[in-house]
Structure formats: C-alpha cells, structure tokens
Design a protein around this nucleic acid. Structure first.
Lengths: 244, 244
DNA sequence: GAATTATTGTGTATAAATTACACTTTAAAT
DNA sequence: ATTTAAAGTGTAATTTATACACAATAATTC
C-alpha cells in the first residue's frame, strides 16, 4: 500500500495507518542469498548448516535480517560480503517469499537474491556453520522453505543464462570453449552439439581470442578466450519474437 | 536470513535474533498492485489519487499493508478484490521495492504484484480516490516510487507477454485477430506485419475458430476466436536457444 | 621417436523459421 | 450501385537451427 487503505469499504485516514504501521502491521524482513558457483563441471551452491533447533542439521541459504537503515540490495551485498568477502559480483533480486508460517518462530518475510561466483577465484575464508559448496542437484531437503527458494532461483538462473552473458562470471577470466560449453550443459542440464555451440558463440561475436592456449591438459590444448563486455553492452539486443 | 546471523564475525544465537525480531528489526510491509487493462487499443493501468499530504494529487498504485496472518499472494488478491471486486485473474509477483526512504513517514517495504484485467468484463464498482484507468504511456509522475514500480512492471509485462499467452486475459473471450494484434502492438509498442502475425499465431495452433464473426463493425467483419488453454497447457514448451 | 590417447577445430547439406511484400474479398454504409 | 475500411491470403528470399564425421594437435607412454 502506501497511503489510503480501503477495508470493508471504509476509507482509513493516513493517521490511522500511521498508528498501524507503528504497532501491529510489522514483520521481520530478511534477505537470503543463493550463491551459485561452478566447479568440476557441476553447478554448486553455497550453504551453511542451520543452527535453529527445529531445523538442526538441515542446510540453509545465507541470510540475515535487513537493518532498519539499509536498502534491500545493500543488505544482500552485505551478507554476501560478510559470508564470502566478495563484493564485485553480479547480484539480482529473485523473488520474495512471505508465507505466514515459513519461519517457525516469527513472521519473517524474506527477499531472495541470487549471485554467481567463480569458485576458483574466491576461496572461502569464513567457514562458520560448515559453509561450503554443494552440488545443486544433490540437495533434497533444506531448512525453512529454502529448498523452494533454491528451486526458484535455479529456474531463474536457467532462464537468465540463456538471455544474458551471466555465465562468464562463473568461469576463469580466460576460458576455453569446452569450459564454456560444460558450464551451459551443467546449468541447463542438457547436452549440446559442440560444433553448433561454437558456431553460435562465434556468430554472437563477443568472444575475444587471447592468442593463448590451455596448459596442463593431457591432450591437445584449446584456445583461450575472454568475453568482451564492452562490445556486448554496445550491441543492440535483438528483437525476439512472440513464442509460447 | 532465518537463523544464524554473522555480523562482525560474531555468531549470534537464535535467542539474540528472536529479541531482535521482536524489537528493532521490523518493517512495515505492503503490497502494491499494478493492474493492467486494455481498451481503445491502448494499454491502461488502474490508479488512485494519493491522499498522503506529501504526494497530494499524485497518482498511486493500489496497495495496502500486509496483515500479520496473511500470505503475500493472499494480500495481493485481497487488495485486487477490495478495489475491483475481481478474483479470477492472473496475478504475479514482480519485484520488491525496499529503499529506506521510499515512504516519507515510515520504512515501508513493498512487494509489487501485476495483474491483467479485461476492462470491458470488469466494470469498476468502487471509485474511491478517483480510481480509474490511465493510459500507461501518459503517466509521468506518481506518488512514492510508484513510477519506478510501474516501469518495472511494464517491462516485465512486455517480456512475459512474448513468452506466455497472458495477453488473452485482456481481450474479450471471443476476439478477432486484429484485436489480438492491436493488443500486442500496444503492449510491445511496435508495428507488426499482419500476415506474419497471423501465420505465427495459426502455426502455434492454440486459437479456436468459433465460426462466428464480429458484429457492429462498419466494414468486413473478422472471424472470432478463443484461446485453447487446455491445449496450451498440454503442449511441450519448446527449447529456446541461447541468445543474448 | 613412434604409437597411443584424448580432445580440439572445422564445413556442409537440410530443414525450419523469419521476413518482406500486394491484391482480392467481404460486409456495412451511403 | 458505389464507396469504404478492414479481412483474408501466398510466395520467394533470407536467416537461423540442426545433424553429422574426420583431420590436426599436444601430451603421454612405450
């Protein structure tokens, strides 16, 4: 809402609302971060062990209450930083979960955020509550409604990764086309034709050949590329037609 | 969050959090509904006049505080019903807006929801606060951050309407292809080729020819169709490739 | 240093989808 | 009967997506 409230066809004044705001109509608000990574050709997610009695032993997303003087995005970045030390990663609001009984003790509405990290570049320094990376597809049960939040975030990721070059933030700054393809296959959970995959990415024309090749592979090394973000930003996103 | 909170590397217990939840860390939570309609070949949105002093005279979305015993979706449907009397319309969460100072009096975090209504089928019965339909593209200024919420919702609508058959809920149950095309042109703000538009929709094969034609048009009447939702639901959504 | 291994890198033919584009038909109104 | 305004329709050209197989390369092994 934000100002006038109609209830049983009686218009409440702003004064009435003010007092409602002060008293009963308040909830605790949290942010939960779904932090995706990629390693050993598998999509991973960063979880901690819940220490709430009801969910003892269950895995949980990284979250915290939003402070009274803090924007939602700010809170998400703070939590990410507190948990991982990282600050310059892509971060996006996913959805807000507010079922009345989603938290056993209080009404806590939570805003889910989603981030993608390069696991190799960002070794975890804080390991409280058994913080570590889990294979996304191995997770069956979680604390609270966190499994639903994870599922929603994963679906969103699958959709976004097809529309935007997000995936590159999960890879080393120099990567081979095989690594890129492995990433897409893992996230989308499909097999792709190698030749057509390459054709597609080369035709998009955002990959820069670095003139280097992989090292320490026990076979023919692949060329290394980086993603040209500047070129991507300048490009006109193409019109994608109507299709259900 | 939801259980353990790390702050300055000090782990707080659940008890600590409990008391935080009880006291300072609470915010007022509202839902704002962005109700889109379609009339005279224009996309419309339903607004009321703000009666908050700071925004007196400005237009505002339809909102209310979320009740302590009410899920977010429930609140959105309640507000929609209270304002319009309607209940069986598509309703979707868009995004949560939580800038610290978005409300002048209190911290109010708002969850935006978006709905599409058929204006002809749903004549407004309640007109409090000058509730009425506005051309979406004529709106320049609004109360609070509601212009930003509207813009975000409109962008979301443009995207969703290309991926899902949402648009049909804005049309009469029997519609002509011209009406359908007008709808898409208005929402997407583009001109489409008539023959290709028809080809596209016929090839999707979800339109049912009702064997009826338009009446009271001063020219050759078009055939009337309905959308076959059952057939659509059964259809496998096609794989849409990677494209930035 | 020859053979083996594993993976890179490449091209083409076919099918499917998208685009651009103009004339005839129809019903209502005059 | 004429006018008006929009409905209805098809094709050729282009672009995009798909299916598919073999030679080149670097490292490892013998």
């Amino acid at each position: 809402m934000d100002q006038s409230i109609v209830e049983n066809k009686k218009i409440k004044t702003f004064k009435t609302i003010q007092s409602e705001v002060e008293s009963i109509n308040r909830v605790a608000l949290s942010v939960d971060c779904v932090i995706f990574g990629f390693d050993e050709n598998k999509l991973k997610v960063l979880l901690i062990r819940s220490d709430l009695k009801k969910y003892l032993g269950k895995w949980s997303l990284l979250g915290d209450l939003v402070r009274p003087d803090e924007d939602l995005d700010e809170a998400a970045y703070r939590i990410l930083k507190q948990r991982t030390g990282l600050s310059d990663v892509f971060l996006e609001q996913v959805e807000t979960f507010g079922a009345v009984n989603r938290h056993p003790a209080n009404r806590v509405v939570t805003v889910a955020y989603c981030t993608l990290l390069n696991i190799q570049h960002h070794k975890l320094k804080i390991l409280d509550n058994e913080l570590h990376w889990h294979d996304v597809d191995s997770i069956t049960e979680m604390a609270f409604d966190h499994k639903a939040i994870l599922d929603t975030s994963y679906c969103r990721l699958q959709k976004r990764v097809k529309e935007h070059p997000l995936g590159f933030s999960l890879l080393p700054s120099k990567f081979s086309l095989r690594e890129l393809q492995n990433l897409y296959e893992a996230i989308l959970n499909i097999k792709l034709d190698r030749r057509n995959f390459r054709k597609k990415f080369f035709s998009m024309d955002f990959l820069v050949d670095l003139g280097e090749i992989e090292t320490e592979v026990p076979h023919r090394p692949g060329k290394l590329y980086k993603f040209d973000y500047a070129k991507y930003e300048k490009s006109q996103k193409k019109w994608t037609g109507i299709a259900f």
